[in-house]
Design a protein around this nucleic acid. Structure first.
Lengths: 250, 250
DNA sequence: ACAAAATGTTAGGCACGCCTTATTTTTTTA
DNA sequence: TAAAAAAATAAGGCGTGCCTAACATTTTGT
């Protein structure tokens, strides 16, 4: 019941594991957790008691384990840190997924809020800035493997020139579309929030602001709701909300 | 005496503190360490015994503390991680020094070798790639504070165009100079290693390769030796070695 | 040189977080 | 439905890393 108890690294790991198990199969059992975290069953019992005492999980001996609202919030926070770090390593540093995931696992416990937000913003910036982009990251990968020479930079510059020409011919109105028209897995840059009033407010609060990168994670059959990821947060938007967001495909 | 014992986070902290104290005043005392790490004196005694047992420090009760060669190597490694992280946070993420330093302090213990190298390379890449550079990072700072709109991107693109023009007029031979002609604090990109034979080999081993960013940290009165930083490593180069390196100012 | 102050060490304790071994409870299966 | 298997818990131990309090050894000031 404690309001905002500080979680130890290992309790964060337990919470994260529970979150993932529940996402797959409604409720978790101690065995699932011990298997996932590779610790003895008795260690799990102790951890579960701690988490229950902090009001983060519903737990009774021999019973299934679920997250309380506070627990879900705390778990999502850990997961967001984890995913943001992993995405940064994969998308910006061009590190392999497995290695990135493992590194995220360790760093997620010690990174400060501010630095995390900066990392998220930087990854976003790299994607939307014309000077960045996936080609640029590919160039970084080349630089890592082969070092850099002036000739490579010349090539790089001509790539920018090509991009510029494309932009120019595309004119000022590019492929601005509505969020609801995106397909699953597509990413876009928020161009404008056309929603007004409360909806507008709600969207901004959730991190949906012009310039932000938004990714469609799942789309219900009728497009309602649409699950998206923005700034590391997973959001579920109603169709009416999605319609109030204009985006530009990346 | 242990060859390559794994150090706990706290022992790494102790080693790092000892390294910094010794850099300032020849030898460390337990009090210096307890003051710096903000722990009780008795904790220091225990840690020192551990470090001595691992053959990393020379330690006798009531006596001054110095690093063994192995200890110096281990300490330098920790310091490199710390500095590389801090530099990344400051130079790439545009985070304040104090905050960056504190974050580095925590992350340095858990970051993997590979990811660290990638971070170092990325920071370097941002500096030497024409698409990156300090102006680009400044743009990132703006993006963080105000979000991004298409107009900003237009400005950004015109900046690149200006850069391109400058490069064009500069022609193909830019300001390639010799490393020995750099002043203290200047940074440059390694263009070519003109040294041959053993010197060449030694330089490459130390991370001085074409494309690398090199920074002059200290310059002896007669330019021999010159202390530089490359890829997070602090090196001391003899004048004869410095003369074998052609660089381009950043 | 010798007391006072500063510094260093020992001893004992506490909290974590993990382990192993043994026991209890629940679920499966024959 | 009862024995076997699986899952969960309890008890006790270990290592780390920190603390306080008490004691030992320098160093310093006069």
């Amino acid at each position: 019941m404690t309001a905002n108890a500080v979680l130890s690294e290992s309790l964060e790991d337990y919470l994260e594991a529970i979150f993932h198990i529940i996402a797959e199969k409604q409720a978790a059992r101690a065995k699932d957790i011990s298997r996932q975290l590779k610790v003895a069953g008795s260690s799990v019992t102790g951890a579960l008691r701690s988490l229950a005492k902090k009001g983060l999980i519903n737990y009774a001996p021999y019973d299934l384990i679920t997250l309380t609202p506070a627990g879900r919030k705390a778990a999502k926070d850990v997961v967001r840190r984890h995913e943001a770090l992993r995405d940064f390593f994969v998308n910006v540093l061009a590190v392999g997924y497995a290695e990135a995931d493992e590194a995220a696992c360790r760093i997620e416990h010690v990174i400060s809020k501010n630095i995390l937000e900066r990392l998220i913003q930087f990854a976003e910036f790299v994607e939307i800035c014309p000077r960045g982009g996936s080609k640029w990251i590919a160039g970084f990968g080349y630089h890592c493997d082969h070092g850099d020479t002036r000739e490579n930079c010349e090539k790089c510059i001509s790539l920018i020139l090509e991009d510029l020409k494309r932009k120019k011919t595309g004119g000022k109105s590019m492929s601005i579309i509505n969020l609801k028209d995106l397909k699953q897995g597509q990413r876009a840059r928020v161009e404008k929030i056309t929603a007004r009033g409360d909806t507008n407010k709600r969207l901004v609060e959730m991190g949906v602001t012009p310039g932000a990168v938004i990714e469609v994670e799942r789309l219900a059959p009728l497009g309602d709701p649409v699950e998206v990821k923005v700034k590391g947060y997973h959001l579920s938007l109603r169709k009416s909300e999605a319609e109030g967001i204009d985006v530009e495909l990346i």
